[in-house]
Amino acid sequence: MLNLFKNLRLYFAYFYIGLKNSISYKTDVLLILIFRLATSLIMILIWTAIYLNSNVQKINGFSLSFIYIYMFMFMPIVTIVSLNLYNLISQDIKNGGIAINMIRSVNYSLQLFFSSIGENIIYVLFVSLPLIAIILFFVHVDIGFISLVFLAIEFILAIIFFSIFDFLIGISSIYLVDLSGLSQMIYNIIYFLGGGIIPIIFFPTQIKNILMLLPFQMLGFTEIATMLNIISTHTILTSIAVTIFSIFILFIATTVFWRKAVKKLSSIGG
């Protein structure tokens, strides 16, 4: 941690280069945005069909308009908290680019993290935050100061948690080489556990309680629930505690795994 603050200027340089890099991929940025909005739209269509065919106004006390708001907010939040580092690491390992990154006197995970934040910032500033602001404006939600503080903590913890998780998945490609199958499976499960398909609040109490004890809720559910004021302060604090604990455990596991896995690094000869 001390190292991080000492080298803050250096990591800002990585952030800056990530930002410049993403700006130069204008078409790619546009296509990703369209894809992400389309995903939200598909979820909305599915939920509309469910509501229309169930002949009820509310499911578990939530109306269709709540689902619209929830689904439109989910994808922008995923964009903020998930940096998709696993993909970059996996590519680096497969094509040997990891060699170049490892020979610099910079922590590999931190350089990756900051350049990805830099690349992501465009989506966050020009899509996620405006979209969330517009939705909140039309829904007339009044977010208090305490909720804003909670939100800030939730976002920071979520970014840290999913980055470490991505790193863990990414480095497993040292053993597995190709991660496409594994990553697709894992991230679909996480998307489900994080409330991306069914809001966690819709589940039966026992399942809901289990899901609220997992850190994956931070993928989008907890943030939306905090903004829309549908969970108690106690639940928010529990979620934060669960995430901090998970980060701690995950950090240790990833560090141990990295130290072991890096010795197996071999696919970069030539």
């Binding site: 200027r9 250096l10 340089a13 280069i17 410049k20 890099n21 170049i100 610099r104 006197s105 030539g270």
Partner: peptide, 22 residues
Amino acid sequence: AHGQLYWNLPAIDTFKLMKSIY
């Protein structure tokens, strides 16, 4: 076989990154 330049940016940007690293 593995360049360290950022493909989509001018080379000077990589040089400036090196300036920060070192």
